[in-house]
């Protein structure tokens, strides 16, 4: 293929795109449908995963209590031991928050309907303990941390939701895994549908391809305009899908997702880096590969 032919072949791809309006529109619509199904599925799974991750972060803590809070020295010793544990090399403690018994009482009183019940308690007869809310980094080595904390605070003064955390964590992993495979299956189905649609558009022009071959066009010369057309179809579908996906997410999906549970919706801006790029990649891949493969079938004349 000669270099001087390249502008012509690109132009030919554009012309072909317009002149085969019905077929290219059909291909674009199929691509948009596939992209929207994939995109919507992705944002739903991601929101669910994000929600579960947030929940698990909230229970990713171990609470250690000190009841003998009047003994200032003991409290200081335990806090110092906890600080030492934090500073230890490869410490599994991400951070800890110290909630004094006064703060704990205040927090409880602030809860709805609790003020009256707790009105008789004050600084002098506060029954609540001093609390250290310790966030851990790694679930796999958390038992070691538990033992170290038990040594400092005593076994009966340690409370955690490790069982719950593990269950939530497993749920999150399962959703990620199932989501991944469902996405992969959907992607394969989408690619097959798109390829079949492009195949149909090429099949409709198989006679043109044959004539091109009869008058001496090389394979590259015949294939190039179809690939340019495939790129345009993929590009147009990706742009339209991105816009539609945005409105679908902010206008419909977000309401549906938050309607089922008190989920903080992931802002649409979070998806700017991934969804359009994924649509573009899918559109271009499907457009180029499907065109090239489909044309190749009709080149042999």
């Amino acid at each position: 293929m000669r270099i001087r032919n390249i502008p012509h072949l690109i132009g030919q791809g554009f012309k072909s795109f317009w002149r085969n309006g019905a077929m290219t529109t059909a291909a674009i619509l199929v691509l948009i449908c596939c992209m929207l199904v994939l995109g919507s599925f992705y944002v739903i799974i991601d929101n669910l995963d994000n929600f579960i991750e947030k929940q698990s972060e909230e229970i990713k803590t171990i609470n250690a209590y000190v009841y003998a809070s009047d003994d200032k020295e003991e409290l200081a010793n335990k806090k110092a031991a906890l600080d030492a544990l934090c500073e230890k090399e490869n410490s599994n403690i991400a951070k800890y928050v110290h909630i004094t018994k006064a703060e704990a009482l205040e927090n409880m009183k602030n809860q709805e309907g609790m003020e009256d019940v707790l009105s008789k308690f004050n600084e002098d007869n506060n029954p609540l303990p001093e609390t250290f809310c310790i966030s851990f980094k790694d679930f796999d080595t958390v038992q070691q941390l538990m033992r170290e904390l038990e040594e400092i605070f005593g076994a009966d003064k340690i409370k955690s939701e490790l069982g719950m955390y593990e269950a939530v964590n497993n749920l999150s992993s399962t959703i990620t895994l199932v989501g991944f495979w469902l996405m992969a299956i959907l992607l394969v189905i989408a690619i097959l549908i798109i390829m079949n649609t492009v195949k149909l558009t090429v099949f409709a022009r198989r006679k043109d391809i044959a004539v091109m071959r009869y008058i001496g066009a090389t394979s590259a010369f015949v294939t190039s305009p179809f690939i340019v057309e495939g790129i345009i179809v993929g590009l147009v579908a990706a742009i339209i899908s991105t816009g539609l996906q945005y409105y679908l997410y902010t206008g419909v999906l977000a309401d549906i997702i938050s309607g089922y549970a008190a989920i903080d919706i992931v802002p649409a801006t979070e998806y700017i880096a991934i969804v359009p790029v994924a649509f573009l990649a899918l559109g271009l891949f499907a457009g180029i590969i499907a065109s090239a493969v489909s044309v190749k079938k009709h080149l042999d004349v």
């Binding site: 006679k207 044959a210 004539v211 071959r213 009869y214 008058i215 001496g216 066009a217 090389t218």
Partner: peptide, 15 residues
């Protein structure tokens, strides 16, 4: 393709 460029072909159905 190079052979076919040295031929000019006309078909019954124009193509």
């Amino acid at each position: 393709p190079y052979l076919r460029r040295s031929l000019g072909v006309v078909f019954q159905d124009f193509r």
